[in-house]
């Protein structure tokens, strides 16, 4: 199934291609153990990531951004869909084990991510050792990586997770993710639990590592300011689907999808004279169990027309050729009268 209305301009093969990724979770507890419903956590998600680029993924809870990340590295097995790295299809041309050497992940909870009974050097050296590296070389690598993330090996190598602050632990998690010299690092709310002053330090570190090691990031966050700062392109998700994707400047300056507009409009103002006077959306995001028909946003969208509850919108290309939005208003002949000039 192609989700794009228009062919994307021919680019060189992207480093990472995701095609139609889908994961539905069955809910237990129905009559006689039958499934009581289906959570459509990720439903037909497709996107590309170019080498050296940072793709930000934003959306509210239940939109499927973290599930997407877990599907990418096969922490959750997808129901269907393809993950292609460097033109090689994972599971066919490339084993899951090899894929994980190319694509590593850093999680939000820095404490839960580390074994409390392992020292920092052991935690970082563990992966390489399991993959056949000698202990001496793995420990040498661990020390090198600790230095790289700004933690003096002499002081930190022998420490346990509880002896480190949250920011320091997250540095260790980043070092561990780098132990295989991955091409892609997925950062799932990796700075969200940190205090602002520490968050800025870790964001600077990520920027340094990216240019030094030529990394590609997928940066998942609910913080639109952080995403704007770090990303080249941004993908907006709503109830398991991609509603908009585009270059960061284009997307923040000219958000096309009504949901993206609402999300940006909900950001607290930083100007005491221009406080927010009206909330852009009422109510909570609907439950991803049995989501609305047609466009999943139509129940909260002030531009919703008849067509929106009937058929699912396709990704439509916008003025900037790399900017897409899945909204009937942009599809000629869809029967939608358009968004007008108001936003």
């Amino acid at each position: 199934m192609s989700v794009f209305a228009t062919e994307a301009p021919a680019l060189k093969t992207p480093l990472l291609q995701i095609n139609d990724l889908t994961k539905h979770f069955a809910l237990n507890g129905g009559f006689l153990g039958r499934a009581a419903g289906v959570v459509r956590a990720v439903d037909g998600v497709s996107f590309d990531v170019a080498g050296g680029e940072t793709l930000g993924i934003v959306g509210e809870s239940g939109c499927g951004k973290s599930t997407t990340a877990r599907l990418l590295v096969d922490l959750i097995r997808p129901d269907s869909g393809q993950v292609v790295i460097d033109g090689r299809l994972v599971g066919v041309d490339m084993s899951v084990r090899e894929m994980r050497r190319h694509m590593q992940m850093v999680f939000q909870d820095s404490y839960a991510s580390l074994n409390p009974r392992m020292t920092m050097e052991d935690a970082i050296a563990f992966g390489p050792m399991v993959n056949g590296e000698s202990k001496a070389r793995a420990l040498g690598l661990a020390h090198e990586l600790l230095a790289k993330v700004g933690l003096e090996p002499v002081r930190f190598a022998g420490r346990y997770p509880h002896e480190l602050s949250g920011g320091q632990r997250q540095r260790v998690n980043i070092a561990r993710a780098l132990a295989f010299s991955p091409k892609i690092v997925i950062l799932d709310e990796a700075v969200s639990a940190l205090d602002k002053s520490v968050e800025a330090q870790v964001l600077n570190l990520l920027a340094d590592l990216k240019s030094e090691l030529n990394l590609t990031y997928i940066f998942i966050s609910h913080d639109l300011n952080v995403v704007r700062h770090i990303s080249d392109r941004v993908m907006v998700m709503y109830l398991g689907q991609v509603v908009e994707i585009g270059p960061v400047n284009s997307l923040y300056a000219q958000p096309a999808h009504p949901y993206t507009r609402a999300l940006l409009g909900a950001m607290p103002s930083m100007d005491p004279d221009r406080r927010t006077m009206e909330a852009p959306l009422a109510g909570d995001p609907p439950n991803p169990i049995n989501p609305p028909t047609g466009c999943r946003f139509h129940t909260r969208c002030k531009f919703a027309a008849e067509v929106c509850s009937q058929s699912q919108p396709i990704q439509h290309i916008l003025a900037d050729a790399r900017h897409y939005a899945a909204c009937h208003a942009y599809t000629p002949g869809s029967g939608h009268p358009g968004l007008g000039m108001s936003s």
Partner: peptide, 19 residues
């Protein structure tokens, strides 16, 4: 400064060092 409101893309953040 660390709050990133209006921080330009790619610009280095003036982070407060230490904890």
């Amino acid at each position: 400064a660390a709050n990133l409101h209006g921080a330009a893309k790619g610009e280095r953040l003036s982070a407060i060092p230490g904890a």
